[in-house]
């Protein structure tokens, strides 16, 4: 189930389990630092074992899978782009993932610019002149891809780690 060999994704939302049943006392919340502990130790080992480029690729791909499943299982308003954005903002806020703000959205050319403030992955990290939210890039790629049925190139152009107060992402249609 979790440890089967595979050549393509076998992830399903059910694999996240019934948290309410499993954690009747501790509940479904935890510290952000614990999430980061897992993410950055995992990143550390992946870079050690596979190098930076491969580690980034793994984070991006897993983020994209997460984005697609998040869209299918969490997002409920999908009729229009506006419905989708409103619902996504609300869910990201309520689940303490981040504060999503759209700066521009051109539905003709399918070009988007958005920011995520108080991002789960990076806000408060030490400045290091690097954009490190690769998982988020994949996550947004998955969300947009699932909503539109199109393929996007999502790039983080500003990041807390590179000295900004919010993470900014651009998304462009891959033609």
């Amino acid at each position: 189930m979790f440890k089967e060999e595979r050549t393509k994704s076998m992830f399903s939302w059910e694999l996240l389990g019934d948290v309410t049943e499993g954690r009747p006392n501790l509940g479904k919340m935890m510290y952000v630092s614990v999430y980061r502990l897992m993410q950055f130790t995992l990143r550390d080992v992946l870079i050690t074992e596979l190098g930076v480029e491969k580690a980034d690729e793994i984070f991006f791909k897993s983020g994209e899978v997460a984005g697609r499943h998040f869209y299918r299982n969490v997002i409920t308003q999908k009729d229009t782009f506006n419905d989708f954005v409103v619902d996504l903002q609300e869910k990201l806020k309520n689940m303490n993932i981040g504060i999503l703000r759209i700066e521009s959205a051109d539905l003709e050319s399918m070009q988007f610019t958005m920011t995520v403030a108080e991002d789960l992955d990076c806000s408060g990290l030490p400045a290091c002149s690097e954009e490190i939210c690769t998982y988020d890039e994949g996550f947004i790629t998955g969300l947009l891809g699932e909503h539109t049925g199109l393929r996007f190139e999502v790039k983080e152009v500003d990041c807390w780690c590179s000295g900004d107060r919010v993470c900014r992402f651009t998304a462009n249609l891959i033609k």
């Binding site: 419905d83 409103v86 703000r101 610019t113 919010v166």
Partner: peptide, 26 residues
């Protein structure tokens, strides 16, 4: 830069509301 980002976001949200999408919030 944060202020500029917020203003860009407000501009976009205002445009959406002007187009009749009243469910947007900031």
């Amino acid at each position: 830069k944060s202020l500029q980002s917020n203003l860009r976001h407000l501009t976009w949200v205002t445009q959406q509301i002007a187009a009749g999408h009243f469910d947007h919030r900031v």
